[in-house]
Design a protein around this nucleic acid. Structure first.
Length: 504
RNA sequence: UCCGUAGUAGCUCAAUUGGCAGAGCAAUCGGCUGUUAACCGAUCGGUUCUUGGUUCAAGUCCAAGCUACGGAGCCA
């Protein structure tokens, strides 16, 4: 469990008025400064004021980001941020200041600074906001991100003295942390995960852009179901029924006929009553779609995308991966090619595993007959046989969506492929060749009872220059959970929407 | 929706066979010149999830409900 910012402080009660700047910018008396706290605080935040301050009395030096601290060794700088931790040793005080880019230890010696400024340091509470000015010096004892450098405090300006920050140094329960998600984001572990998430999304988009894909946005409010009607959120669209999108795929199929290779990226919504570590009600998905593409070519693309994303995270986030204690040797193993096994083969392997085990419980969990879709324990058992993601292709047509192409001469299976992540993270990608023949698609829509009217535009695509094509969807949160080694997707998104949670 | 576990101080938890409601952390006050979730001393802190029941006596037993967590199904 993640712990919050540690803090120890033993001075400054609620009645104290310490939220004054150490020195008012007009050179005014400190008592006046206290009275002016609010207006000064606002002013400090303004860019113009910052420039003014630089010209006065040396309170503010060059404002830097803590991630760049090593470049400023020996120089006086100003950092702006929040108190992540404070350790008092009497006349010596340590502040761990975070500024969003990193963390730096700031050290206050009573003898070396103004008495009142020192008292402000002594009274600092967890998550109080302030500006600190002082000299950067290398010190191998200094913790931080990156660490190894600290700031000897010469002066500071308190913006706000925080009171009773709820996330304390000891462990907290999931419910408490999720109720305080807006504050939990400040904790190291959450900070690291969400930075990696951003890189994963950027890497996916960079790779696709470089491969000649075009980002083409698809609607969030849609007139018809993408797949099944039971899992949709309904929207009142000026008196008519509409739905929140659960996929952009059908629109992607229209878009490839205009642009060749496209992808959409956005939130999708599923009103499923799923309550597992792999499910969110609102989740983000990236969906590429390619004209003139076979299932084999689709697997090549997925493999290229996933290996690039993992490599980018390894290259850019060694610091964050260390912070969340991810075993990076497992990630370094993620290189092409990935194993490709058929559904038939997968069933045989699972039946073999079930036979091999003596544990009756495990035997029951693994039991599967041809034609059934994999359950969660089966998916995990299958993926455990590989130390890389594994492709499983040609699933039974009956368990897959209506638009997937049947295999020629063997219509009971279809040209579909899932990518299962290792370490029990399950399916992160689902994709297929799409049916491009009008008759067959119409038959399937009728068979599923979906109603042709709603799919007229989709059927049009098979009338005006239809071509073989394929595409897939990759779930961002599952990918982040796997790459970060998290046991639940709720930590992979800033504000998770779960079965019983829409707050904060 | 089903199965399992839990709900006690702001947080994380303890409380023997049904017999005075307890600790660590946080907060508050004091001490400390190299801390890494610092440490030491003191103080403050309670509708034991709710409702009803059994009992001389209920945090503990019974019933119903609520909430959360873990798992299943469904899926990315």
């Amino acid at each position: 469990m993640d712990i919050g910012a540690p803090a120890r402080y033993n001075w400054s009660g609620p009645g104290d008025r310490r939220s004054a700047t150490a020195r008012c910018r007009g050179g005014c008396d400190r008592r006046e400064a206290a009275a002016l706290t609010a207006s000064v605080s606002h002013a400090i935040l303004a860019e113009e004021t910052e420039r003014q301050l630089k010209t006065e009395e040396g309170i503010v030096a060059e404002v830097i980001q803590i991630k760049d601290i090593a470049r400023y060794a020996g120089q006086e700088v100003t950092v702006r941020g929040w108190v992540y931790n404070k350790t008092g040793k009497g006349r010596l005080q340590f502040i761990l200041l975070r500024d969003g880019s990193g963390q730096a230890q700031c050290v206050a010696f009573k003898r070396e600074m103004d008495a009142e400024a020192f008292e402000i340091v002594r009274g600092l509470t967890q998550e109080s906001s302030l500006l600190i000015t002082g000299e950067v010096r290398p010190d191998e004892r200094a913790p931080g991100i990156p660490g190894g450098f600290e700031i000897g405090i010469r002066d500071l300006q308190l913006l706000q003295q925080a009171q009773d920050y709820p996330i304390t140094p000891k462990e907290h329960g999931t419910e408490f942390l999720m109720n305080h998600r807006h504050l939990w984001l400040r904790s190291n572990r959450q900070w690291a995960i969400l930075r990696i998430r951003a890189t994963i999304i950027k890497a996916m988009r960079d790779w696709l852009d470089d491969q000649g894909f075009l980002l083409v946005d698809t609607p969030i409010i849609t007139p018809a179901a993408g797949e099944e009607t039971t899992t949709l959120f309904e929207v009142d669209y000026f008196g008519e029924l509409a739905f929140l999108a659960q996929t952009g795929q059908l629109y992607n199929e229209a878009n490839i006929m205009a642009f060749g290779k496209v992808y959409c990226f956005g939130p999708t919504f599923r009103a499923e009553k799923s309550k597992t570590r792999r499910h969110l009600i609102e989740f983000w998905m990236l969906e590429p779609e390619i004209a003139f593409c076979s299932l084999e070519e689709l697997m090549d693309i997925e493999e290229g995308l996933v290996t690039y994303v993992v490599a980018q995270v390894l290259e850019k986030h060694s610091q964050e991966l260390a912070l969340i204690e991810r075993d990076v040797s497992k990630l370094r193993a993620i290189t092409a090619p990935f194993a490709r096994i058929s559904y038939d083969d997968a069933i045989e392997r699972l039946q073999g595993l079930a036979e091999a085990t003596d544990d009756p419980e495990a035997k029951a969990e693994l039991a599967i007959a041809w034609g059934e879709d994999f359950g969660s324990p089966q998916e995990t058992a299958l993926a455990e046989q590989f130390d890389k993601p594994v492709f499983v292709y040609n699933y039974p047509t009956a368990v897959k969506a209506f638009y997937m192409t049947p295999v020629e001469g063997r219509p009971e299976v279809c040209r579909s492929v899932d990518l299962l992540a290792p370490e029990g993270y399950g399916e992160i990608i689902g994709g297929s060749e799409r049916i491009h023949e009008l008759d067959l698609l119409e038959q399937n829509i009728d068979k599923m009872g979906l109603g042709r009217e709603a799919y007229q535009w989709y059927l049009d695509l098979r009338k005006f220059g239809t071509v073989p094509h394929a595409g897939f969807g990759i779930g961002i949160e599952r990918t982040v959970a796997w790459i970060c080694g998290l046991n639940h997707v709720r930590e992979t998104i800033p504000y998770a929407r779960l079965l019983n949670r829409k707050y904060p």
